[in-house]
Design a protein around this nucleic acid. Structure first.
Lengths: 239, 239
DNA sequence: ATCAAATGTTAATGCCCGTCAACTTCCGAC
DNA sequence: GTCGGAAGTTGACGGGCATTAACATTTGAT
């Protein structure tokens, strides 16, 4: 049930059975969300945090002119709003980009973990720190990378993150994002997004159809993206 | 000595004298850095985290073509690399943008805090979560705001953050950033950065000279920026 | 005070990317 | 199968922004 969470946290450091039991014990209700539904709405003050068991979700903000910007993509094994445990008030929304199956962890039980399980606390903290590292990489991509490089970087990131939780097959993964939604990831117009995707296809490093991305040449893709996975902290070491 | 840290952490929730003593006890060596010097270098594995006592610093990444992107600005009372306590390896550098006076906190002592002081641990965790919230706001600004709105938002953010640690006077603050450095914050060319600053000046909401920004019309500035300080979690409540 | 270097400012040119528009393809409902 | 709407694709055009270059101004070093 929580296998993807264990894979996600366990990539950074070993987690004990006792810790798995604590995590499992923090979980309460399961729920499903349809594509397009808000999993958490902006301005709310949730009393639980949401773990994705299956599906793809995204954090987003909407501006007055209607423009939307995604600030992160969340895959199975991710807490979409672990930060709300301490931030209290959601300053952004979280939407399901595909049918999402989730499970809730009560903040009271997360708090109990911080009182009694320092190592597990550090791993949960670390999970939010990796979030931050991904945000920084997105800022760099938006500010200083070419658009095709930005897109290539996103493909690299998603492939690696999905691989950790065993949601890739060979060099392919499912990416249920319309081009309009991708445009809200990269901060582009729909039309230009379409052209950038076309350019990446043309370059021959990936195929991309039916919402499935297949990496044909990982090495060249990594070069185009200048992708260095250090920021994902995938090395297992004492934390 | 650690007054700005107490102000920074204390804005989110009350901190006890015992907690202040724990923080104080975690500090070791003080040091100064000159403008332009790296406080922490990319790829390093520091065994301590760095707190800014005075000065302005920034996190940054450099791309192969030499392009630089700042991913955050750090003011007095900020830990510039608290995340390295758990991430272990720095995936970016941190540079002093003005003469910086800092103090180091040993990771071993931070670890001891996580073992013995759950509430203080949550406040330190929260500090890194606010970092993440700021990152998200930067992503939105880079992706979907006009450049003048982005700049206005940055001014709002810095003013509020500096106010918390008592580094503003009336509606002014010192911002020791060249236009070239600002361009690396917004992801613009130097020439265009100059024009955007000119446009913000023209609009009459701020004056900006001698590295000092004065807000003439906070209300209109906030409107231009669509600035909503919720993301900074400045409300004091149990965490 | 003088000079060199860093920083700020302005103009010219061209490309990247947004907008508008038209059209095609895909997909689910019936 | 047929229909309607969503998603994808392509072209035309204009504006925002990068690049280059030149010059002005400020700053710091001697």
């Amino acid at each position: 049930m929580l296998e993807s969470l264990y894979l996600n946290l366990g990539q950074h450091d070993a987690i004990s059975d006792a810790e798995k039991a604590l995590l499992s014990g923090a979980m309460t209700v399961e729920r499903s969300f349809a594509t397009g539904q808000d999993i958490v709405s902006s301005g709310s003050r949730p009393t639980y945090s949401t773990l994705i068991l299956d599906g793809l979700a995204a954090r987003y903000k909407v501006l007055e002119d209607g423009g939307r910007q995604f600030t992160s993509l969340q895959v199975p094994g991710d807490f979409v709003d672990l930060h709300a445990f301490l931030l209290k008030t959601m300053d952004h929304g979280i939407v399901a980009l595909s049918p999402c199956h989730v499970i809730f962890a009560d903040h009271s039980k997360l708090r109990a973990i911080t009182e009694q399980a320092p190592h597990l606390t550090r791993l949960l903290w670390l999970d939010t720190l990796v979030d931050g590292a991904i945000h920084r990489e997105w800022i760099v991509a938006m500010g200083r990378r070419s658009k095709i490089s930005h897109l290539a970087h996103l493909v690299c990131e998603l492939f690696v993150r999905l691989q950790v939780v065993k949601h890739t097959t060979d060099m392919s993964f499912h990416l249920p994002l319309s081009q309009a939604e991708l445009a809200d990831v990269l901060g582009l117009s729909i039309v230009h997004m379409n052209r950038v995707i076309g350019a990446l296809r043309q370059s021959g490093v990936v195929t991309w159809s039916n919402y499935t991305v297949t990496i044909l040449d990982w090495h060249r893709l990594q070069e185009v993206a200048e992708f260095d996975p250090t920021y994902l902290s995938m090395m297992r070491e004492p934390r």
